[in-house]
Amino acid sequence: MSAQPAGPIDPTRVAGQPRVRRRPGPSLVVGGSIVAAVVLMALLSFVWTPHDPTLVNAAARLRDVGDPEHWLGTDKFGRDVLSQVLVGARTTLFVGVVAVGVAGLLGVPLGVVAAMAPRWVGETLMRAMDLLLAFPALLLAIMFSAVYGGSTLVAMIAIGIATVPSFARIVRSGALQVLSTEYVLAARAAGRRSWGIGLRHVLPNVSSLVIVQASVAFAIAVLAEAALSFLGYGTPPPTPSWGRMLQESQELLFSAPRLAFVPGLAIAVAVLGFNLLGDGLRDRYDPRLEDRR
C-alpha cells in the first residue's frame, strides 16, 4: 500500500525548535554578553587574578583607581579590588546556581503535579505556594541564617525556597495549557499514561518558560545575596563577595567612594544582564508570542 506523495518537505522551514528562527533581539544580545562576561570573569579567577584577593598588604592600603599595580585600587586592608571583583563573580554565580537550582528542582515538579493531579490536590498545593509567596524572601533567609549559621549556601537555599512558588505557578499555568492541547489528547488516545504525558509532552513544552523564569530568578538571587552579605547574613569573610565588598566600603563612603562604586556597579550590571537575558529569552520563546505569526 502506498499513497500519492504529499509533495516535498518545505525547504524554507528550517530545522530547529521554534517555528521561526528570528534574529535575536537586542536584549538577548546585550543580556547574553553581560552574563557571558560574568561567567568568563569567574572562570578567569580560577586560573589568574592580578593579586591574591585575600592578601592583606598594609603597605598598599587604599590605593586609588588607576594605580599601576592595582588597576581598581585597594581597600583599607590593601587587598586588590580587581582580584576581589573577579573572585566575587564566582560567588555570584554560585549563589544564582544554588538558588535557581533549589527553586527549579522543587518548583517545576510541584507545578507539573499541581496541574496534573486531581483538582483539589492542585488547588491545595497552589494555596500553600501562595502562603510561601507571602513570606518575604530576605526574612526567610535571615531566619535560616540564624538557625543554621550564616553561610552563602544556607542563605541561598533559603532564597531558593522562597522562589519555589514563582516556578510552581508559571509551570502549572504552562502545564495546564499543554494539557488542554489536542496532542495531549492524542497521546492519551495512543495509550500514554499520566507520567508519560508529564515527561514526554508537558515538561519539554514548559521548558522554555522555565528557562525564562530561571534567568529572572537568577537576577533576584544575586541581588538577595548582595543584600544579605551587606546585612552580614550572607557570605562570611574572607570569601570575596560583591555584597560584602559593598558593606565593607560603608565606613569609607566619603573618603573612598570608589570602594562602594566598583562592587555596586558589578552587582547592578550583573542583575541587569540576567534580567535582559530573561526578557530576551521570553521574547524568543514565549509560546503566546510565538503563535502570533
Binding site: 506523495p5 504529499a6 522551514r13
Partner: peptide
C-alpha cells in the same frame, strides 16, 4: 480527483507559471 503536492508557503512559488510544480 486530487491536485498533487501541497500549496507552497508564501514566497516559495516557482518562477513562470506559479502552478507548474503541481
Amino acid at each position: 480527483t486530487t491536485i498533487p503536492g501541497t500549496v507552497p508557503p508564501a514566497g516559495a512559488f516557482p518562477e513562470g507559471c506559479v502552478f507548474r510544480t503541481r
